[in-house]
Design a binder for these strands. Structure first.
Lengths: 127, 127
DNA sequence: CAGCATCCTCTTCGATACTG
DNA sequence: CAGTATCGAAGAGGATGCTG
């Protein structure tokens, strides 16, 4: 499960885990949280993974509880982050299609991992 | 990669994905985000995964940038969420050890998945 | 259909200082 | 060593209403 074969950048400084104190790559967590830490992002990605490209209102229907403002804002951010693509389908009537980029689609294992975790290791019953 | 064999609860209502519009389980995302959505949680879990149980100050040193206040607050939450355990090691001098619960350790694939994703599908160069 | 503008509130996080 | 108290700034997110 460990990313032994990293391509772009490295997670670990070296192969060995000596006494010499190495730290996590803070930037990696920041990037991850930009996507995974915001309330609607993961839910949007999930819907696009499951059902493929769709329009604004289709998303609004499927992403339970989202308002048009939050959906719009989230989609803009996800676009900026290179996770979703927005394509103009037609002008009259106005129709757009949101889809996942390659970067976005690459989130699939993460989304499923998270869902699996929630399902299999439910909330702590005690508190 | 899909959670075909769920034990506790179900992600999908049925086996079939008909026209009849099913939605994601909102609660699952909420739980996930309680852990993954807060700034320090994932970084703390990461350190405990990598280095095993450790004390408060060891964590403070390893989790780059965290203050004692945020670390304390985060650990309390993670304890409440059943992700980390706090064990009193000795009274004089005061020593505690934080470790992952089973639920916490089960986050390993998610943490690695997220890190892999950041590393392999780096930030969008364009914007 | 596919959004944006405003306003408002609640939470999160950081800085700083202090305690058993 | 292992935390807590207090303060303040920033941002996320919701409600509502309007636009091309």
């Amino acid at each position: 499960m460990r990313p032994e074969s990293t391509t772009a950048r490295q997670v670990r400084p070296g192969g060995t885990n000596g006494e010499s104190f190495f730290v996590e790559p803070p930037a990696a967590f920041d990037e991850a949280q930009e996507v995974v830490g915001r309330k609607w992002h993961l839910r949007i990605v999930y819907q696009l993974l499951e059902h493929g490209p769709m329009g604004f209102n289709a998303l609004e229907d499927r992403v339970v509880g989202v308002s048009s403002k939050m959906l719009s804002e989230s989609l803009s951010r996800l676009e900026d982050d290179g996770v979703v693509d927005r394509d103009l389908v037609s002008d009259q009537p106005l129709r757009v299609a949101y889809s996942l980029t390659e970067r976005g689609a690459a989130l699939e294992p993460v989304v499923w991992g998270l869902l699996r975790w929630s399902v299999e290791h439910g909330p702590a019953e005690d508190a």
